[in-house]
Design a protein around this nucleic acid. Sequence first.
DNA 1: TTGTAAGCGTTATCAA
DNA 2: TTGATAACGCTTACAA
Lengths: 325, 325
Amino acid sequence: MHDVGLAVGVSAITVSRALYSPERVSDTLRSKILEAVDRLGYVPNRSARALASARSQTVLVLIPSLTNTVFIDTLAGIEDVLRPAGYQMLIGNTHYSAGEEMQLLRAYLEHQPDGVLVTGLSQPPEFAQTLERQGIPAVYMMDLTADGRRCVGFSQEDAGEAITRHLLERGRRRIAFMGAQLDERVLKRLDGYRKALRAAGRYDAALEDLDPAPSTMQMGADALTRLLQAHPDCDAVFCCNDDLAIGALAACQRLGLAVPQRMAIAGFNDLQPAGWVTPPLTTVATPRYRIGTEAARLLLASIAGEADAVTCHDLGFTVMPRASS
Amino acid sequence: MHDVGLAVGVSAITVSRALYSPERVSDTLRSKILEAVDRLGYVPNRSARALASARSQTVLVLIPSLTNTVFIDTLAGIEDVLRPAGYQMLIGNTHYSAGEEMQLLRAYLEHQPDGVLVTGLSQPPEFAQTLERQGIPAVYMMDLTADGRRCVGFSQEDAGEAITRHLLERGRRRIAFMGAQLDERVLKRLDGYRKALRAAGRYDAALEDLDPAPSTMQMGADALTRLLQAHPDCDAVFCCNDDLAIGALAACQRLGLAVPQRMAIAGFNDLQPAGWVTPPLTTVATPRYRIGTEAARLLLASIAGEADAVTCHDLGFTVMPRASS
DNA sequence: TTGTAAGCGTTATCAA
DNA sequence: TTGATAACGCTTACAA
């Protein structure tokens, strides 16, 4: 900055103003400065800027996985709001681990982010304390809570209940649940499933197939095969996500079981392939992209001190009945 | 740092050493300092550290898309090498735009990254110049070059040629190409396709269906339908990626065309669904994860000044013949 | 509209 | 093994 100033015959602070508070520098001088910046290939040092100004123009985003389309879509929404506002994202991949999440928070806090976007609500108390201590605002994504934290999402439990009720309404009586990863969202969908079945007097714990490993199509296929061996009377399955459901669908075809006649299948998220498999998959459409944009907007408002202390946006979900049920 | 020092009765610099050069501080003192760090909730300031040390322990990763599994897999590889080495990633999403890529480079250069991982080779000269000027090492991912840049990948052109030859060997005579996005990798696969068909005396430009829009299954389905209307004698199609291919497969089923008897279909990348559609999709398996790990390793070596000036890793590819051809 | 001085939190250098 | 001092590149506060 000093060198650029020398080239134009002004001081460093004027260069700083020309770049970041253009209205405080005369037009002629500013254009000369910008020209010199370009000619000299000057690159501002963000560390120095952050250090001097105590603001990093940076937001930390913690998501459980980069291989799950759900979070990538959310990220796209976040980016579309943050970029135009002049913020950069730091992306932390927690690999669905609370421990890694806490570690990442600590590590990325060193960048003095102006705010944090968090996935889910089940962090240890330490997490919120750390943020509080640093005075960094946070918005929690994907689910809802009334405990005072700012959040943007929809009720995972209600969604699980709704899709299960849909299967009941289609006349299914022995509805299984297939779950992988077993993160908090899957467990809440499971809660919803149980609620719906208990209300209908059709709950049977034996019909729950839970695997903490990450979900794959293969896992869905294996689980379905296993399920039918143990419970030949099972006539429907709610899979905690579309991947498992597509694997289950393929397994049915391999086993020669007609979908939906013999076996109804429902997934969750409505990813692109759900509409393309045969038969098309009944699933729950989730507002992932909008969760990203709204969460980012809410965070920016919080950073600016404009957000209500307690704000939760319920963006809802949509049951998508298709031919697989 | 000063406060932590006060609490223990030492100077700030000793706290710094306790944290980052533990061998330079006595054991007893160090444990007292670490205890105070914990108790006071001290969070180091990375900006100050970067400013004073002139090293950011940060690597910039530029990728064209976050919704394409290919790059997410590469990212996973990069992360698995960079994290243990104490580096943080800054992820820049170029949206397949050379302009955005250049902008992102400028913007993220402000973080003074110690190195840059770049996707593809077709940046404007300005790109390499900027890096050169700042003395920041770069590794180029996904493809190969002999122009002196460090790179890790495989020959996109050879891969396109190989899968086309596979279709020829299966007796196909009117082989179409279906391309979306039209980024440099797709165009090189197209070059390979042309090379193979010309060598066989079977090239026909009319059989190329190119669309600059991002690929979707819908686009694959539409393109296949269009292709068959215009060229009913077409008996195979090489799709530039698996998404298009799966869409094309679905379209064939809808049109009642037997795959592979009437129509052979090949994709590219061997993503998870490729093995799960019916019939399973012939495609090209690409070493995405390893491209990430090797590129990151090469970059770390370059940062440390240990890499050969010119190093290119050819990680190869594998044609995966399945039932769709 | 422009400039001066001081300081942001850390580490490199040199010294003890 | 520990510390004092200066410096990293920039912005804030104040002044002209």
